[in-house]
Amino acid sequence: MSTEGRRIAKVAALVAGGAVVGAGLGLLFAPQSGAETRRTIGRYAKRAQIQAMRFGRAVKSGVTEAVERGKHLIQKRDQKPVVEAA
């Protein structure tokens, strides 16, 4: 992964982490009963789980596509005739 790609991944992880922490704090300080808060947290956790699975599938798909492109480029390179000087 390039340096820019790593930077983008770090920013995305920080944003996602901040969203989770912010949502958690918002739920803890909300004027609700404990049962309502637990139910809300459970729903939020289920949605976060679904989103994480979707994100994981998208990442896996992207990695698979990149690997296939790399394999294709290597095959293309290997098929080119090599001309050597006499």
Rank of each mutant, 00 (worst) to 15 (best):
D78S: 12
G17L: 04
V83M: 14
A58K: 01
A13V: 06
T3F: 10
G22L: 08
V59K: 03
A9G: 00
L14P: 00
T40W: 01
A66V: 00
G22E: 04
K10F: 06
T64W: 06
K10C: 08
T3Y: 08
V63H: 01
A86N: 10
K60E: 15
A9F: 01
T64D: 14
L14E: 15
L14I: 12
D78H: 06
R6N: 09
L25K: 06
Q79W: 03
E68C: 00
T3S: 11
G26V: 02
V83R: 09
A13S: 12
R39D: 13
V59P: 00
Q51R: 07
G56H: 10
K60R: 15
R43C: 06
A45R: 00
G34D: 15
L14A: 13
A45Y: 00
A48L: 06
S33Y: 12
P31E: 04
E36P: 04
V83A: 14
G22Y: 04
R7T: 04
R47V: 09
I74A: 14
M53Q: 11
A66R: 02
F55A: 11
K80M: 11
L25R: 08
S2A: 15
R77W: 07
R43M: 15
K80E: 12
S61Q: 14
E4N: 14
A85V: 09
